[in-house]
């Protein structure tokens, strides 16, 4: 059982919210979902494969009958799920450094949330509400999100070179090859083992 698989880390955090606050958060999520620039900072953190927040309402937990005791939950819950490249510390540091305002808007409705800045209490909070991953499959443990994006660029560019090459004179091919290299030159990183987590 580990949150780490090669270059990727899976983080789950579950935090309780007073039900009336859930309404406010839903309003904020609605705005976030419809105003793309608001998401841009999160998207621009290139080491994040994805990040998602989901509200788990207190009355919608599964009830299976069959002797399961009915519970009256006092809190709604906010599930945060993210996969990212790099270390836990690096991730939370970056969150705190560049996304603190957005994070505060998402998490301030959760009980005992200390704020995303300063970073040490924020880290303590995440560590406290984090649930470890039981099973974690990843298709490319030796590739980070950036490596995958690069691979797509190289593949597409190579395919198009290959197509053009069929009808090229040697001079035209030289030119097409140069253009191919210029297209892929910033996307040629090796894949491989992740550095040791510390």
């Amino acid at each position: 059982m580990s949150n780490i698989n090669g270059k990727i880390y899976a983080l789950n955090a579950i935090t309780p919210m007073k039900p009336w606050k859930t309404l406010v958060l839903r309003g904020f999520f609605f705005l976030l979902g419809h105003i793309k620039p608001l998401q841009q900072d999160l998207i621009n953190l290139s080491f994040i494969e994805f990040a998602r927040w989901v509200v788990l309402p207190r009355r919608q937990f599964p009830f299976l009958g069959n002797g399961q005791v009915k519970e009256e939950l006092q809190y709604d819950y906010l599930l945060f799920f993210s996969n990212f490249n790099g270390t836990w510390n690096q991730y939370i540091d970056a969150f705190s450094a560049v996304l603190s305002k957005g994070l505060n808007l998402v998490w301030r409705w959760s009980e005992k949330f200390p704020g995303a800045v300063p970073v040490t209490p924020f880290k303590e909070y995440i560590a406290r509400v984090q649930f470890d991953t039981d099973y974690y499959y990843t298709a490319y443990p030796h590739a980070a999100a950036n490596d995958l994006k690069s691979a797509h660029i190289v593949q597409a560019s190579l395919d198009s070179l290959s197509q053009r090459a069929q009808a090229c004179t040697p001079e035209q091919f030289a030119d097409a090859y140069l253009r191919f290299v210029l297209e892929v030159q910033a996307h040629l990183g090796e894949t491989g083992e992740a550095p040791i987590v510390f």
Binding site: F47, G86, D93, G189, E193
Partner: peptide, 23 residues
Amino acid sequence: SRQFEFVQQQWIEYGNDPHLGND
């Protein structure tokens, strides 16, 4: 750990931040 070791590990001996994979 936060400064020297990070620079040494992530930026000298690795390349994900500048999108250079393991270079």
